[in-house]
């Protein structure tokens, strides 16, 4: 009996070991990094104190402004390659922070948040990335979620029209007539792009969650030894001063509704550009 047990164990161990070996030979995996770099036109974007009167940036109306908060949510990341390579970054949610995966909050104030490491990417060539900007319906409808979606940990949860702000910019501009209040500093500018609801027969119910694809212009290789990185630039001027709409801070300085944010949401695609990739 004992002998039999020993033999079967041996047999299965060998089978198992050889199976692993085969798998390893078949497919290897590597890490791909996406690095987000925020800019304002041709200047680097840096965060100013909320009360700062140092106005480094200028829009097309010659209105000066600064930035005290800037960030956005990225999710549903997909890499694709010229030979049919596809990698989909798995998205999972739950109450525990550890269960929340594939959803990223990129913040100008946090350097670590600006680099997203995608692990388990199958070896191969990749030449484009697709992602969703904002938190889409399927995730919002899950209910209370942890990690980057936990409102007590800095998640941008809109309370009154529940959902998450997908893209947030706050700062000050002397052109903004806003008076100081419990909500805002003087000359406040706040543009929050949110809204995820699609309601049939209601064109006003805005879904500002956008998904777009960015081409690398070349292809890079992933393997267990190669960890390429794509540098993605996000130009704030393209968002608040772009093709589909531009904010005149004298009148457009507090955007806190889905409809108010539509034109800026339309600008988002062209704000994100792959500056370069390295191998």
């Amino acid at each position: 009996m004992k002998k039999f047990l020993f033999l079967t164990t041996l047999f299965f161990s060998i089978a198992l070991l050889s199976a692993c070996k085969k798998d390893e030979e078949k497919a290897t995996f590597g890490t791909f990094y996406l690095q987000f770099d925020n800019i304002v036109g041709d200047q680097d974007l840096t965060i100013a104190d909320a009360a700062s009167s140092d106005f480094k940036y200028t829009n097309s109306l010659d209105q000066n402004f600064n930035v005290s908060l800037l960030g956005y949510y990225i999710t549903n990341i997909k890499l694709e390659g010229p030979n049919g390579e596809v990698f989909v970054d798995p998205v999972t949610t739950g109450a525990a922070a550890a269960d929340v995966k594939g959803i990223y909050q990129v913040l100008e104030s946090s350097t670590t948040s600006q680099t997203i490491g995608l692990s388990n990417v199958p070896s191969g060539k990749y030449d484009k990335v697709t992602f969703t900007l904002g938190i889409p319906a399927d995730i919002v409808q899950e209910g209370a979620t942890g990690g980057v979606l936990d409102p007590a940990e800095g998640a941008w949860l809109w309370n009154w029209d529940a959902g998450y702000i997908g893209f947030a910019f706050e700062g000050r501009s002397p052109a903004s007539p806003v008076a100081a209040s419990q909500w805002n500093p003087e000359n406040s500018v706040q543009i929050h792009i949110g809204g995820w609801k699609d309601i049939t027969d209601n064109p006003m119910m805005v879904n500002n969650v956008k998904t777009f694809t960015l081409d690398f212009g070349t292809s890079v290789s992933v393997s267990d030894k190669l960890e390429p990185k794509a540098h993605i630039e996000m130009d704030l001027l393209e968002v608040i001063d772009g093709h589909h709409g531009s904010a005149d801070f004298t009148s457009t300085n507090q955007v806190h509704t889905p409809a108010g944010g539509t034109e800026f949401a339309e600008n988002l695609h062209s704000a994100f550009v792959v500056d370069h990739v390295h191998q």
């Binding site: 919002v140 409102p151 007590a152 309370n159 009154w160």
Partner: peptide
Amino acid sequence: GVHHLDFAPPNAIENPLEMDEKMTHV
């Protein structure tokens, strides 16, 4: 405005006219 029961409490907690508190502080 609220589509999920889980998201009803933050409304009351953070509304300055109701509990006027911050989730983080709670």
